[in-house]
Write a protein that binds this DNA or RNA. Structure first.
Lengths: 210, 210
DNA sequence: ACACATCCTGTACATTCGTACAGTATTTAA
DNA sequence: TTAAATACTGTACGAATGTACAGGATGTGT
């Protein structure tokens, strides 16, 4: 309540970064600097004064999101425990999620860094879940991890394209509905494909080959 | 062989459309009209002569890809039979696939049309596979279909971002490697999550609710 | 009080891009 | 053959955008 009436605590440099983060998440990285300046309440040249170029400003935002990446436990929705966690803190992490999805939609190198970071995060989660007997073993666990990470990020991307949120804050609430979670739980707990001779021979063959 | 020496059979209008298709797939929809003109070997105003605006040109390409959509059986990789089919015709369908992925990366309304079309296609495939006993039943089959379609397109998107092909022709060969297919087969034929009391109660609860 | 660094703004420039316009060649129709 | 429609090009204009430059306001150290 005390900070509510204060105009703005943050320095202009931080205000610009936050404004850029919001604009990038909401409108994509092709957002004009003029929009960011308006969002931050400053002039355009002040942006180039603090951050030399637009690319440098974006890099700063990337690093900032990368530092906050641990907040995004909700991306790891593959264990039923983490599902409940995801329902806790949404709005702050939602903007980060949308920002990352935007990075992937932009198809630049920063997406690769986010992906690597996410695989690291998911690796430990699945490892502990496997140790607890909650996750079954795999023929090639690293390759399976790669597929799970790809499916997770990809699902977010498609969901974002199909139902773009007017407010980036609401994205994760919009994605992880109970209807979606049902399909998620089922697809990962019960086999989709029925056992067949062809499938069995294929699966046993890849188990023998390294 | 006979057509190899002929300069170009196609009318300029068709050449422009094909060039736009290639440029859009390779460089994205922000490709300048000048690049398309160069690729087609014509002047820029000729493009605006045949297709009034750039958006109209893109719409024409969208319709053209939508008409050729049935060639893309390879997107339906969820049954082991269709896997073998996918190894047949690649290069022609690969450009279409990359074009569609670009549409999703662009996050415009045309992506929705592609998605609906793909769900229709996948629906019949899974229905026949289910009738043949190859695919197990689901609690909410339409919702499961939606998830499978989302995962398929999303996987293509992430794969495209992580390993962008220098030549759009080679994308599908690059994606559907045997290493990837192994993980695919396993994730859809053997449960990832081990049965647990919490999971069982969750699954039985959603089976009773409509 | 003064010099100086920092913060900040207004203006302007260069580039890129889609599109419009005027005009020329080429094909078609009568 | 002639007139008209069609295909095609060169030039240029207007809008959007990132960035550079000059200058003013503000605070800070001596």
């Amino acid at each position: 309540m005390s900070t509510a009436t204060q105009p703005d605590d943050r320095t202009a440099r931080a205000r610009i970064r936050d404004a850029a983060l919001v604009c990038f998440a909401r409108d994509g990285f092709s957002t004009p600097l003029r929009s960011i300046a308006q969002e931050a309440g400053v002039s355009v040249p002040l942006i180039t004064h603090h951050y030399k170029t637009k690319d440098a400003l974006r890099q700063t935002c990337d690093e900032w999101v990368l530092d906050r990446f641990l907040e995004l436990k909700l991306l790891a929705i593959h264990t039923p425990d983490s599902v409940k966690e995801s329902l806790a803190d949404t709005s702050s992490a939602s903007v980060l999620t949308v920002y990352i999805v935007r990075s992937f939609l932009d198809a630049t190198s920063s997406a690769r860094r986010f992906f690597d970071r996410y695989m690291d995060q998911l690796r430990t989660i699945i490892a502990t879940a496997r140790a607890a007997g909650m996750v079954n073993p795999s023929v090639d666990e690293e390759e399976q991890l790669h597929l799970l990470a790809t499916q997770s990020i990809g699902t977010l991307m498609v969901e974002f394209v199909l139902h773009p949120p007017e407010d980036p804050t609401l994205f994760v609430d919009q994605v992880f509905t109970s209807r979606n979670m049902t399909a998620y739980m089922e697809i990962y707990s019960q086999p989709l494909l029925a056992p067949s001779p062809a499938m069995d021979t294929y699966l046993t063959s890849i188990k023998e080959k390294p």
